[in-house]
């Protein structure tokens, strides 16, 4: 049951990411969350998703976020009053949803995790889910164009 331990740590770091006052530190906590999530994926016999999560989630997103923060140089967050209440409320909400979910949706518990390999995932990705390729490329294209548009230089557009 190592997986519970991993996910427990994950939740702890997620809490840190939410509650730390220094945004840089909380972004780093988020990176830890990503890393722990990829370990959890690995433990769940899904190495491909784990690798992606580690490289992209923990790596790329952190780099982007840290870059932004260091550009913007704004690290401290104002103190929030009444956070405990909100936390209790959201957790209570999630607990409620989860409870209902358990009560109303009897499910099969799978204790045996199937084995998967890179090849198999790749095959599915390139054969069965090939039709996700076009939208994925388009999303990346759109994101690139969007970022270019949002970070473009100069120009005062008039009131329109």
């Amino acid at each position: 049951m190592m997986i519970y331990l991993t996910l427990g740590f994950l939740l702890f770091f997620a809490l840190l990411a939410v509650f730390l006052r220094d945004t840089l530190l909380s972004v780093l906590s988020l990176a830890t969350v990503s890393a722990l999530l990829s370990i959890a994926f690995y433990q769940l016999n899904s190495p491909v998703a784990g690798a992606f999560e580690l490289s992209v989630g923990a790596g790329l997103i952190t780099v982007l976020a840290v870059l932004t923060i260091s550009f913007l140089q704004k690290r401290k967050e104002k103190k929030q009053p009444g956070a405990a209440l909100w936390l209790a409320l959201s957790l209570a909400l999630a607990a409620l949803v989860f409870f209902l979910f358990q009560a109303l949706w009897p499910q099969v518990l799978a204790d045996i995790i199937p084995e998967t390999s890179w090849g198999e995932v790749g095959e599915i990705l390139w054969k069965v889910r090939l039709f996700d390729l076009l939208p994925q490329i388009l999303v990346i294209l759109a994101a690139v164009l969007g970022i270019l548009a949002l970070l473009r230089k100069e120009g005062e557009s008039k009131e329109r």
Binding site: F131, V139, A142, A143, L145, G146, I147, A149, R160
Partner: peptide, 24 residues
């Protein structure tokens, strides 16, 4: 899932276009 991807495409293009006049 394919639907979801197109939905994301829709969302991302609209974010970028809504904020297109980023000088304001």
């Amino acid at each position: 899932f394919n639907l979801y991807l197109f939905f994301e495409l829709l969302s991302i293009t609209s974010f970028a276009l809504v904020a297109f006049r980023k000088d304001k």
